[in-house]
Design a protein around this nucleic acid. Structure first.
Lengths: 250, 250
DNA sequence: CGAGGAATTGAGAAACTTCAACCGTGGTGG
DNA sequence: CCACCACGGTTGAAGTTTCTCAATTCCTCG
């Protein structure tokens, strides 16, 4: 099984063999987290940095009045809280959407890696900057696009990111999300999400089979959503060699 | 005149004297940019990293249909494009909102600093992470709050950030922004921004004198906007010693 | 004084929300 | 094995927020 983290980082910049080994070493200690559990919570100062190796999770924040905003989907290879190595305190929650296998890297290990391995440091920085670029694009999404385009844009992004780690087949990928969560992501009510999904389906832009999203014509959806993948800063085109497996749904 | 960058970084983590000197050294070369000019543009690979020393700027992105989203206000001490030292290509524009004095730091100097000065590297990383935290909070803002709360929240954030660099007096600060730009920031039409501003003023939450925003009761506005400054990760309370001066408006 | 950009206002339309009901499915306990 | 329950999805209808268009005023600058 390929290591999702190594794979992702190598997609950004070449690493030394010793860097690669250090990463694998540091991902040795893995844990399985069941669905719908907090991985870290706001205010935590976790002693380890968590990397998703299998499964999906979300970053989110709960408001006083019970509303919730999701601001990122975490897929295999993504860091949950690299922040904490620098900022000490989490300013949002991270929740598993399905059973996840994660690696826990000690803060000391992160510090050691960033302080003594410039290439790794650069790769981690790259991750952070891509996360930031994604946030900016989501802001464009919420600020400027209507419900249908917003949702379509999210699907395009997820398709591209999942394709890059081999988690798509043709235009389809598995996404274990409720319409409610989709609403919390898009700043829409669940009802309106439902109607927008129907419109997208009626327009033949996407279709759904259980929790699988199927995009019959990726280019058409991208055009509809005004999606331009350059903000994802992928170095080379999506590589689909050996997929990172998902854990079986519990 | 204190250096806004040094001041900001020291607000995050203590620096060595030699780090501080290196920073001052590297900010030696400054340039004044007039109002409403591109500082960098999407697709650019600027050879220098730009830091705002005086004045305000915005990050923004233009959509195909002419709509625009602003996703950050840059104030003295903020980096325009630290990204570029790692990602090579800008994925958005940066525009001056008023005459700005900026320092241009070569990519090599940034690389040298991050690779040989761990404390500085950490401080720069801190900057990036705070930028990211602000983006997340803006996402909450656009996704979950109505027009009035959104605008109030932005004012609270700017007040806090500007207070931290000594650019407020009592509850007031200068903000050279049009209602149109405010709309592009908040995902609202200029007309609706206008009406929302009127409501806020009628409620006595803020008032305007020219381009100066006055918050009569900061706590009340913060409560109204559901504003919690912890996402800004300021280490110590706002320090108001010697303000960073603004250039006279052109 | 005139020009141009920004702010303001009104009115009608579109997007989105809320509430409430109903359906389908999968899991659980008897 | 079946009744029941809970949760997510679906739909209708009415209400609210926000948008667009268009006209008017205000301000600043030349």
């Amino acid at each position: 099984m390929p290591n999702a983290l190594v794979r992702k980082l190598e997609g950004y910049a070449p690493l030394d063999a010793s860097d690669r080994e250090r990463l694998l070493d540091v991902c040795e200690k893995t844990v399985v987290i069941e669905a719908d559990r907090y991985i870290t919570r706001i205010g935590d100062s976790p002693k380890d940095v968590v990397v998703i190796l299998e499964g999906f999770a979300v970053r989110s924040k709960l408001l006083r009045d019970g509303r919730r905003q999701i601001f990122a989907f975490l897929v295999p290879g993504d860091f949950c809280d690299l922040h904490v190595a620098v900022l000490d305190q989490m300013d949002h929650d991270i929740l598993s959407m399905m059973p996840c296998r994660v690696a826990q890297i000690s803060r000391d290990a992160v510090r050691e890696m960033t302080e003594t391995r410039p290439k790794l440091a650069k790769a981690l920085w790259w991750c952070t900057l891509v996360d930031e670029a994604i946030l900016r694009e989501w802001l464009v999404n919420l600020g400027q696009r209507d419900a249908e385009q917003r949702i379509a844009h999210l699907f395009c992004e997820l398709h591209t990111r999942l394709h890059a780690i081999g988690l798509t087949t043709d235009g389809s990928f598995s996404l274990p999300i409720t319409q409610n969560e989709l609403g919390d992501t898009m700043g829409l009510s669940a009802v309106h999400v439902n109607r927008s999904l129907r419109s997208l389906r009626d327009a033949g832009l996407v279709s759904f089979r259980g929790r699988v999203i199927q995009i019959p014509d990726v280019e058409r959806l991208q055009h509809f959503a005004d999606f331009d993948p350059s903000y994802l800063h992928l170095r080379h085109g999506p590589a689909a060699e050996s997929p990172v497996p998902l854990l079986r749904q519990a």
